[in-house]
Amino acid sequence: MPRSRFDFLYSACFTTGGLCFLYAPLIQLLGAALWEISTTNPARFLEAFPIAPLPRVLFWNTFWLSILSAFLALIFGGIVASVLARRSRFQISAIVLCVLPLAISPTLAATAFLAWTRLPPARAAASLAATDTISINSIFIAAPVLALCFYPLVAFALAAARRAIPMEIEDAARLFSNPLQVNLRVIWPLLLPAALASAGIVATLSMWEMGAPDLLDARTYSVQIIAISAPSKIFSKRLWMRFR
């Protein structure tokens, strides 16, 4: 614990302030929503479960989009990580090239894809009508786009994990088997936690992403929330009118 009373007070106040800043809006939103639903119409809790047609479609779209994006990001990131982990003359170039995709957000990547294929954006095709069900093709389009934006996360994590494995383990295994077997039976199990963690992060980011799935007609929870809450920027306008 901090040695002086001032240190303790400073750290306690600062930490509490940070926690309040992060948690207060979320607790207020969730608390108010739960209170309102439980006091007015408890049956609406069922809408949160994927039982009715629309929540079911949203659930499976979100699920498959995140799983497919994570899987593809794992493949792309794994290949790039094998280059990043080697101490070769390509290492610095690979780091720079791997950082650059962070400058292209998924929305920009989806925009580029639509411009390249000359497809209309989803909302122009009036595909946000509540009764529409989505074709699986849009998930197959959105997932590679998201994976190509998020693979650096997997690549950096896997490269760091690969460098952390002692060379002696690999050398010892190579005495008894070929490189493929060594990679499959020794290296890959050691890399599995890093791979799963980074794939999980990519799956989560894909799940939350709104711009790219909206443009590419992959209707997920985020897209549905924005379709309900912000078609006319009702929140911003209301907020601005009040503050002005």
């Binding site: 992060l22 207060a24 809006p25 979320l26 939103l29 939350w208 929870y221 929330i225 924005i226 809450s229």
Partner: peptide, 20 residues
Amino acid sequence: LFILPVFCAPIMLAIALLNF
């Protein structure tokens, strides 16, 4: 405790901030 709010989707965070 500081990592946990990451698991709130950005859209939800935006609505929470507007309400708050």
